[in-house]
């Protein structure tokens, strides 16, 4: 389970590239559809376009992302600066962190405990908490 630095760099580069390719931005809402020929029997509460917004489940607020990310510092040190044998996070970008977590989650990257943790988050949650870690660790 020993990871040479070069292997890590390679992996980071590889998964990092893959991650940047996918976008978290939802597709733009379509223009309001043409009204139906027949009037609806009852008034509709919301315009049809609103239903589309439901797609990416529930948006993750910055505060909820912080709540998830703060847990990481118990092992990885305050703001991701680890004083001991556990890797620091402060030198990683949000993309790096998200890619690593996804690789741990899928098992593509072996780990002692990180796989067990990463499986607790959706990909969207991973991206949100990675963004938070990267934002606070640079302060």
């Amino acid at each position: 389970m020993k990871w040479r630095k070069s292997t890590i760099t390679l992996l980071l580069a590889a998964v990092g590239a893959a991650a940047t390719a996918c976008s978290t931005t939802p597709p733009p809402a379509p223009a309001a559809p043409a009204p139906a020929a027949k009037p609806a029997p009852a008034p509709v509460a919301a315009p049809p376009a609103a239903a589309k917004v439901e797609e990416p489940a529930k948006p993750i607020s910055a505060a909820a992302a912080a709540n998830m990310a703060n847990n990481c510092f118990a092992c990885h040190g305050p703001r991701g600066v680890s004083p001991g044998s556990i890797p620091s996070l402060h030198n990683l970008t949000a993309g790096n962190i998200a890619s690593l977590l996804k690789a741990f989650k899928s098992g593509e990257r072996p780990s002692t405990v990180m796989g067990r943790h990463a499986k607790g988050y959706t990909d969207a949650e991973i991206e949100a908490l990675a963004n938070h870690i990267a934002s606070v660790s640079k302060k």
């Binding site: 389970m1 092992c75 040190g77 556990i86 405990v113 067990r116 499986k119």
Partner: peptide
């Protein structure tokens, strides 16, 4: 689907790594 315990019958290296991470965890927390 998340969490759980370390694998059974893991290699000596795996147990050593977790011992090392235990010490790292203490320093961090």
């Amino acid at each position: 689907g998340a969490g759980g315990v370390s694998p059974k019958e893991a290699s000596e290296g795996f147990r050593e790594d977790e011992a090392k991470y235990a010490v790292g965890w203490y320093a961090s927390i």
